[in-house]
Nucleic acid binder design. Structure first.
Length: 219
DNA sequence: ATATCGATTATCT
DNA sequence: GATAATCGATATG
């Protein structure tokens, strides 16, 4: 058995893995590995995700119905839905449910395994202490920058094929303790516990789920 | 044609 | 803990 970063056997997840309810896919995605195969190879373990449901989920992009922007989440399962947000950042999702039905999982945080120098270059950060590693892939926008994920390059990419530049692998790791909390940064359906994370993992974006704005009280 | 807002982040107090 | 930055998608006139 190899002992570095990831085990020697890494195989892609089949289409059927993603052809299910986004909540189940989200939970089972924890512990899997995101892989960028380019000049070098980047790998990082999935430690935090959120499920976005179909047209009935007010917080989901699918709530607006099918548009040019969100078409991928209505398409075949296992494809990358990449969108641009806040004028600066990309976010990566994977489509779920059978073709024609909307649903996806947002990648919120990863634990870097290999290709760390390349990630640091892409993120324009210096790594001096082990804590600096959290600057690489903790947060949905950050992980996209670390993996050089953009809409033009990666939207609709098939994440179930190891022939793809970007894909998802299973290296045999099994998630121990999974926590569910409300989703981050949304205003609609903000109470549903559709955010999943590996309990205690230091690369999770907000371990304690703080409110976005301070609580307001009447005085 | 113009206004609004967001599945965020960096940076400052 | 708070806020500016930034721009594409969407809504509205």
């Amino acid at each position: 058995m190899a002992q570095r970063g990831i085990a020697s056997r890494v195989h892609p997840l089949g289409r059927s893995f993603f052809e299910r309810d986004a909540r189940r896919v989200a939970r089972q995605l924890l512990g899997k590995v995101l892989i960028r195969n380019d000049e070098g190879t980047l790998t990082a373990r999935i430690v935090e995700v959120e499920a976005y449901l179909g047209e009935t989920d007010p917080a989901a992009h699918a709530a607006a119905g099918r548009t040019l922007r969100n078409a991928v989440i209505f398409g075949p399962p296992g494809h990358a839905y990449v969108y641009f947000i806040y004028g600066n950042h990309y976010c990566l999702n994977v489509s779920c449910e059978p073709e024609g039905k909307a649903g996806c999982v947002l990648f919120r945080a990863l634990e870097p395994l290999s290709g760390i120098e390349e990630m640091a270059r892409a993120r324009h950060v210096e790594i001096s202490t082990s804590k600096d590693l959290q600057k690489l892939t903790t947060g949905p926008g950050r992980l996209c920058e670390a993996f050089s994920i953009t809409r033009t390059r990666d939207n609709d990419c098939d994440l179930t094929s190891d022939e793809s530049s970007l894909w998802i692998g299973d290296d045999g790791y099994s998630a121990r303790s999974i926590t569910a909390t409300p989703r981050i940064g949304i205003t609609k359906a903000a109470d549903l516990p559709l955010r999943y994370l590996l309990a205690g993992n230091p690369f999770v974006s907000r371990p304690k789920t703080q409110p976005r704005r301070p609580e307001t009280f009447f005085s």
